[in-house]
Amino acid sequence: MAICITGTGLVNAPILIAAMWLAHSFKLPIMIVAVFKYLDTNFEARLSSILYLGIIVIIFSVIAVFALKKDNSQMVKNTTIE
């Protein structure tokens, strides 16, 4: 995925950008199948792997809330001259 994003930034023509993302569309399903095979082999069948994925998403969301907090000291006030 990083190669496609980097490649999209390096090419100039819209056709080449579309070709980069078309190449990405072949890799994504293969990666998704690999993730689900990993979950099937490494987690119990009684507990859904979606439960584990839901917990991981919640943890990263909580981290993001604190890591991406707006810093008000960097804000520039707009002043108008009358």
Rank of each mutant, 00 (worst) to 15 (best):
M20K: 01
L10R: 10
K37H: 05
A45Y: 03
I5E: 15
S25E: 09
C4I: 07
V62T: 05
K69S: 07
T80P: 05
M1V: 08
L28R: 09
L51Q: 02
T8E: 08
T8A: 15
A23S: 10
P29C: 01
I50S: 14
G7R: 00
F36Y: 12
F36E: 10
L10Q: 09
I15G: 04
M75D: 15
S48A: 08
Y38A: 05
E44P: 11
V76I: 15
G7E: 06
V76S: 06
T80R: 11
I30K: 10
A67R: 03
A34S: 08
F26R: 00
Q74D: 05
F60C: 02
W21E: 13
D71P: 00
S73G: 01
E82C: 11
L51Y: 02
K70C: 03
I55N: 03
V57S: 10
E82M: 13
V11C: 09
T8S: 14
C4G: 05
I50G: 12
K69P: 02
A13P: 02
A67T: 08
I63D: 07
T41P: 01
P14W: 04
D71G: 00
S61C: 01
M1A: 14
I30R: 09
N42R: 13
F43C: 03
L68D: 12
A64P: 00
I59D: 06
F60Y: 14
L47A: 11
T6C: 12
M75E: 14
A18Y: 00
N78Q: 12
S61K: 07
I17N: 01
H24C: 10
L68Q: 10
K27M: 14
E82T: 07
I55M: 14
A23T: 07
S73R: 05
T8Y: 08
A13T: 10
A13Q: 08
G9V: 04
K37Y: 09
V35Q: 06
